[in-house]
Design a protein around this nucleic acid. Sequence first.
DNA 1: TGCAGGTTAGTAATCATTAACTAAATTTGT
DNA 2: ACAAATTTAGTTAATGATTACTAACCTGCA
Lengths: 195, 195
Amino acid sequence: MQTERQQEIISTALDLINEKGIQGLTIKNLSKKLGITEPAIYRHFENKIQILLALLDLLKKNTSQIFETELNSDETAIRKIERLFEKHFYSFAQMPSLASVVFSEEIFRNEEKLIGKISELIEHNNQTLLSILKEGQQRNEIRTDIDGNHLVIFIMGALRLFVKKWQFSGFSFNLEKEGAGLIQSVKLIISTHKN
Amino acid sequence: MQTERQQEIISTALDLINEKGIQGLTIKNLSKKLGITEPAIYRHFENKIQILLALLDLLKKNTSQIFETELNSDETAIRKIERLFEKHFYSFAQMPSLASVVFSEEIFRNEEKLIGKISELIEHNNQTLLSILKEGQQRNEIRTDIDGNHLVIFIMGALRLFVKKWQFSGFSFNLEKEGAGLIQSVKLIISTHKN
DNA sequence: TGCAGGTTAGTAATCATTAACTAAATTTGT
DNA sequence: ACAAATTTAGTTAATGATTACTAACCTGCA
């Protein structure tokens, strides 16, 4: 469980990374933004790594959950993928800072624990997506001429790059609206060809 | 033009980022790896930003050139895309450190000049790829039911994610060999459906 | 009254960078 | 051809900023 202050710290850390990148996330900047002094941070987190680990938990909560929920829903595979995109876009639109962190693994490369945790998260989400796709292929909803692992790369690659473009543009376009078009293209690409 | 020592410094900087991420690229680490003292670095580069700018030039040389060459070749669009992947894979296989940097824009987020330069590079390469795709669509080699800009996202997204997976695995699989399979899937996905 | 959550004032370590000096190589003037 | 002048590429020693973090103290509140 997290206290309100801890959540506030994590959310502010997220904003800082969004604004200035990982090199902008310092205890000084963090405390300044929170309106408290540096040592006060240490009343809530043991050290900086714990803050980043908590931040990774937030990422996990905001992405893993999406994958898991869809895996266990009753929809068609195509509809699951569609909702996967929609939910991601919704989540990022609600909290744009998230988009600046979630697909930027470079941020977590300076500590063994962090590397392990983000790798795990990515791998787990990929496996969940692969399950959805394989099920869709068995049901003949999703094309079988392309290996499931490759489909994962196309889907996640597109999602990642599209969100990164949005971030790079300074969140200047409507992610959910523009994203709807991309979702249609994804469906065209992965569906079994019917004619 | 660059001196031999400057190239050595850039190449070593690349290796450092590959090993420890951008936070591992310090003048101290750099000089230690080169076997010289820290101030000696400043005989070859004005400051650290100039080193990163020179590193971006290396990235540009290794990616822009690939795109440009293919744009102006006489091959079919499909063959151009195929060679685009092959050349990227070859380039990264020759110099794996490159793969750790080229799709990690986060590295260059702490200085206005760096952000500008990497954004320019990405945008330029995307535009070149878009030209290739649109020409292919006009010639009816590439499917027209999906917008060119979306095809760019699928192609670049897949290339980026695939290379990133290779990096994440510690370059543990054969990029060119495994990549050949992905290229076949890319061709299946972007080609006009013929039957 | 005890403690959660702040403060002030510091720590050692590390950061990029500079000043001043030097040995060796190279260029220049005669 | 050769000594003098200059340049190149390194050194040691130090700079002020900044890093994450700590010790000791304070204060309002349950």
